[in-house]
Simulated assay, not measured.
Amino acid sequence: MGSAPGGPPDDPDEPDRARRQRDTEPIPRTRGEEGPGYSDDAAFSRGPSYSDGPAYSESASYASDEGRAGYLPPEFSEDELAGLRTDAAGMPIGPRRVLPLEDEPSSLVARYLFPTERYRGEWKRHWIHLSTPLLIGTAATFALGYLSGFLARQEVRGLTTAAVIVWLGVMGWVAWQIADWYYDRFILTNKRVMVVNGIVTRKVGMMPLLRVTDMKYEQSPLGRLLNYGTFVLESAGQDQALREVKHLPNPNELYLRVVEEMYEPQAVEARLGKDAEDVKADDGA
């Protein structure tokens, strides 16, 4: 492209100079459109400050209804937060996983506790423990009842009387098993676990909590359905008075009780103290 007649000759660097001038020209800005955290005094000395600018304001482009959902804090239900709330003493105020502790032992158990021992609870075995005696009693009733009626029609009085005596003997044995089940108790204190059973001959087995090296409970499918299980206690690989305790009710709740007593006795004492204060407050009200 030639120069105009009479004018200065064309400068070959003129297009590059014009382009550089255009690229380095500052961009005009109006008040309110300044970037977040950049001042005129120190343009890049401080770095971006997200507290000054509109980065998280409602007018930001990514704070729309669709984008804002990604920045909302997670929401928790009241049930999920209940286990995290504590009272002034630091105890959870949410739903308990263990049932309240009993206040006093029964007269059957109290005689086996020494004065400084703190009682935690006692449990009778699950009613499934009586399934065998009850089935035998039911079968004997039907069988011997039918046999007695048949012998009575045959007018064999001696055998009829013998059948009735056998039935009474079976019923007596069933009643004995029921009484033995009633007096059979699993006991937990702050020092030991105990099993007390027997009617005429009493048997008392115990194991100190400090010597329990392993504890587990087992539940069969029927046990899970009816809520009973078998506890197995190990004590340093030695023979002990009680190792396997069958047909205990609420095994999960009982397991938590024993484990808490073994590893968190202070928590048990704190809960007992709190319960006692609540009772006194209720009585005062």
Rank of each mutant, 00 (worst) to 15 (best):
A4Y: 12
G6P: 05
G7T: 13
G7N: 10
P8M: 13
P9V: 09
D13I: 07
P15C: 01
D23S: 14
E25Q: 14
R29A: 14
E33C: 04
Y38V: 02
G47E: 03
G47M: 01
P54S: 06
R68W: 13
E78M: 03
D79F: 00
E80V: 01
G83W: 01
R85I: 00
A89Q: 08
P92M: 00
L99V: 13
P100F: 00
P100Q: 02
P100G: 01
S107P: 10
V109C: 09
A110L: 06
Y112H: 15
W123I: 02
H129N: 15
L134A: 15
T138K: 11
T141E: 12
L144F: 09
R153A: 14
Q154W: 09
L159K: 12
A162Q: 08
V166C: 04
V166M: 02
G169D: 04
V170L: 04
V170M: 05
V170K: 01
D180K: 03
Y182N: 10
Y182A: 11
V193S: 07
V195I: 08
V204S: 13
M206N: 14
M207I: 15
M207W: 07
V212D: 03
V212K: 02
Y217L: 04
Q219L: 00
L222K: 05
G229P: 05
S235W: 02
S235D: 04
G237L: 04
D239C: 11
A241M: 11
V245H: 00
P249F: 03
L254E: 03
M262C: 03
P265K: 08
V268N: 02
R271D: 08
E277V: 01
K280N: 06
